[in-house]
Nucleic acid binder design. Structure first.
Lengths: 262, 262
DNA sequence: CCCCCCTACTCGTATAGACGAGTGGCTGAG
DNA sequence: CTCAGCCACTCGTCTATACGAGTAGGGGGG
């Protein structure tokens, strides 16, 4: 039992009607915000906090779970509770699907990651035909069956994004799009080669807390929301040719859009 | 102590190495997902769950706090724990700043809300001159002082969004922009009247858990992230003329963008 | 010198109990 | 019949204790 670093944490206000565990959480949060605990630094252990505040361990754990829910700290069994480092963010520009970017052989993800000095990976590649969900079917104009392409993206070994593309079967079957690796420029380049000249994309963005499955797939820490992006690609005839459903770890991304003012 | 509705919740698997509170959370989550507890419905009380599973109350509370952190349920002191209803979402189209929308007298928020049958409100209106944060200053090209316009938006009495606009002082001082109500079409219409013809907007989107202040301002339930949007408006000379920092309750919004494929 | 094991420390899970405070329905007095 | 007050039920907070399991470091044996 080592004494706490002096002066970092104050005392409780017993006259306050604010719950004790909230007061403790407040003090820890303030100390983190002010940099008295730096990114990645270890907080005092639960038993040290019990000692310092003179409360029971459950109260301390309650306070820590508040901070964990806010995404400020994460705990490691057997080691301690640490201030969550802000991971480097990956920035998605709205022109990343511009035609000129489809020339080179690599995928947008690979190019952007390497430009940022990170090691990109793609796994969980799955390509199969299936019945679409009601939502996907509606967005694609009601096909009974679709080609689904699922993959997970990782940066430096950390999963950051899970995406599923859906294309009408009549359009994708027996084409390079149905191959695990569709070739340079990705499926958008193949679609254009097949005569479906792309006209525009529609993107819908939501943010929410992850499902248990998403927590597993993206290895999300608690307190990290996901960004849910649904993109629909339209060809020049106004036909929807692809729906891409993407779930991203929110702490790894900034989305950037440029809009005309006209 | 009333018996549980039969068959809704199963038994624990004592051979599993999954923690008991997680198993309970799993069963409740599944029951909610499958609609056996509907939106707004009351879950069994803590003591009923204690009875049903034969565990201590803290274990049950632990399970419930998992679901609360996921945003699936919310508790009401003295009443019970309820399945969180999905609130109606407000859809923000990417053309909502198009020039043609600036003709009518009402603000975009008011028009859209009334079209959706909701009662819009704006409060916490504050207009003042101040020193910008480093980030805002950098985005605006480095002014020492800015005009800040802060306001909160509510739908049917529920706060959904808190926004702060920042404009360089030399541009906004002693203009209608410095008035609490800048007039029909909002500050973008005034900017154009002042000769700053708008060219394009840049938007950055992040998602994260709210700070305690944001929880208060937006009266957020636990397990609801926020969408943080930073928009910069540029005039035809390429000068940034406004930065708008917006924090939205994520469960109230879907952002929609349309992107050209060129 | 190296490696294994023990130990002390960490957090994870769970029990049992206590009191407080908000809610809503029932009951008895008026 | 009305209404005030009681009471049972709800969740909120806190204490005290126990054991399990992951981690890291030191010490002792090979």
């Amino acid at each position: 039992m080592v004494a706490l670093p002096s002066g970092v944490l104050g005392a409780l206000d017993s006259t306050s009607d604010r719950a004790v565990f909230r007061q403790i959480a407040d003090q820890l949060r303030e100390a983190i915000d002010k940099g008295r605990f730096k990114e990645g630094a270890k907080l005092p252990s639960e038993s040290e906090l019990v000692e310092h505040y003179g409360v029971s361990r459950m109260t301390v754990r309650n306070a820590l779970s508040v901070l964990q829910g806010e995404g400020l700290v994460h705990s490691e069994h057997g080691k301690g509770v640490f201030v969550r480092p802000r991971p480097p963010v990956r920035r998605l520009a709205s022109d990343r699907f511009a035609r000129r970017h489809r020339e080179q052989g690599k995928s947008a993800f690979t190019v952007e990651a390497e430009a940022a000095g990170s090691r990109p990976e793609v796994d969980s590649l799955e390509v199969k035909e299936e019945r679409p969900t009601q939502d996907v079917s509606a967005r694609l104009g009601g096909p009974r069956r679709v080609l689904a392409r699922r993959r997970r993206y990782l940066l430096d070994g950390r999963p950051v994004e899970f995406a599923a593309s859906f294309l009408p079967l009549d359009l994708a079957r027996n084409t390079p799009i149905a191959q695990p690796n569709p070739g340079p420029g990705g499926i958008y380049a193949r679609l254009e080669e097949l005569g479906h000249r792309l006209d525009h994309f529609e993107e819908e963005i939501r943010a929410r807390m992850p499902s248990p499955a998403e927590i597993r797939t993206l290895r999300l820490a608690s307190g990290v929301p996901v960004i849910h992006l649904i993109r629909t690609a339209f060809d020049t005839e106004g036909r929807p040719v692809e729906v891409c459903d993407t779930v991203m770890a929110a702490d790894a991304y900034v989305l950037a859009y440029q809009l005309p003012a006209t």
